[in-house]
């Protein structure tokens, strides 16, 4: 546990479903069910999965924006889950966030400079004049012009707004930034610019990222390690190279086969998944992926595979991972 910047242990988040006049319980949505991972200094971990798999819930739990049902979050060895709002405030400056939607994540009634300066103001960093100077520096760092400081968010394009969001996250010099699908609301051409900016910033400042995404192509560029989530559980976690070269979980294989190859005429065997994501209210028995899995056997219906570490350091939750490893 030492050495890791961020450590998440057995994180769970269940939402009770109530209905009817008396508000009686009608079950629980198991948004996140026992997720563990760690992020080292300067490292980028990506969490990928379909919408509804719980990846954003993980991000919000790490940030202390929602109270997890179970599990613990450690920042530099200090437990930060279950703290009061006031206690949590002291740790927030080390743990910043960039949200997915660059339109709704900036207050439309504050100027760009006010938005970027607000975190510094919250932590009483410098005088107003000093903060303005720092904001100008941050603007330059994220590729915005200082003469845009007094504009309002609606006067910026989507990509520029996301740069503002990044400048705001950087303003407290955090140790780690949670990026909750930071580019999925942007045009493809702008996506690349923002990803490159994030990579440059990481190399320059030595940041760590928790990068939430549903797009493997984006993840391939920025991450050191990749975790794949399905229905609130982690199904595979490995360093980027081995995950992309040798995916062991059938779900990861299916996801990878859906990534287009940027080469005309190139073909790859397409694994098509049948059916939809099952409801997280009544998840399937055993392995949650078995109704859609091409390899599913009787054992998968009965027994839930735990995430285990193989000899290669690859972590996977599938009964047939060894077979998959041997076959390649």
């Amino acid at each position: 546990m030492t050495g890791n910047l961020l450590e998440v242990v057995d994180l769970k988040k269940h939402y009770p479903l109530t209905g009817g006049l008396l508000g009686k319980s009608e079950g629980v949505v198991q948004a996140v069910n026992g997720v563990s991972f760690s992020i080292g200094r300067g490292e980028t971990l990506a969490i990928v999965g379909e919408s509804g798999c719980g990846k954003s819930t993980v991000a919000r739990s790490v940030l202390g924006l929602i109270e997890p049902t179970g599990g613990e979050v450690f920042l530099e060895g200090t437990k930060i889950s279950g703290l009061s709002v006031r206690q949590m405030r002291a740790y927030r400056r080390h743990l910043q966030v960039v949200f997915q939607d660059p339109y709704s994540s900036l207050n439309p009634r504050m100027t760009a400079a006010e938005i970027v300066a607000e975190p510094m103001r919250n932590y009483r960093m410098g005088s107003a004049a000093k903060r303005r100077e720092l904001v100008a520096g941050l603007f330059a760092k994220v590729g915005l012009r200082p003469d845009q400081m007094d504009r309002f968010p609606h006067e910026f394009s989507g990509g520029q707004r996301q740069r503002l969001g990044i400048a705001r996250a950087l303003s407290l010099s955090p140790k780690i930034i949670v990026l909750d699908e930071p580019v999925s609301a942007l045009d493809v051409s702008v996506q690349a610019q923002i990803v490159n900016l994030l990579i440059d910033l990481r190399n320059e400042i030595g940041l760590s990222y928790l990068f939430i995404a549903h797009d493997l192509a984006v993840v391939e560029h920025i991450s050191d390690r990749v975790a794949v989530m399905y229905l609130g559980r982690m199904v595979e976690l490995a360093d980027k190279r081995s995950l992309f070269a040798r995916p062991l979980h059938p779900y990861t294989k299916a996801l990878l086969s859906a990534v287009p190859i940027p080469e005309p005429g190139a073909h790859r065997e397409r694994i098509k998944m049948t059916g939809d994501i099952p409801s997280p209210i009544r998840p399937p028995s055993g392995c949650r992926f078995h109704p859609r899995c091409p390899l599913a056997q009787d054992r998968c219906k009965a027994e839930q595979p735990e995430l285990r570490t193989l000899a290669t350091g690859h972590q996977v939750a599938c009964h047939f991972a060894e077979t998959a490893l041997g076959a390649v």
Partner: peptide, 19 residues
């Protein structure tokens, strides 16, 4: 989201209300 962002940036409750 900007209110959630303000919480994540350590903005105090009264200031979130006012700003």
């Amino acid at each position: 989201t900007y209110v959630e962002a303000a919480v994540a940036m350590g903005t105090s409750e009264p200031r979130i209300l006012v700003r």
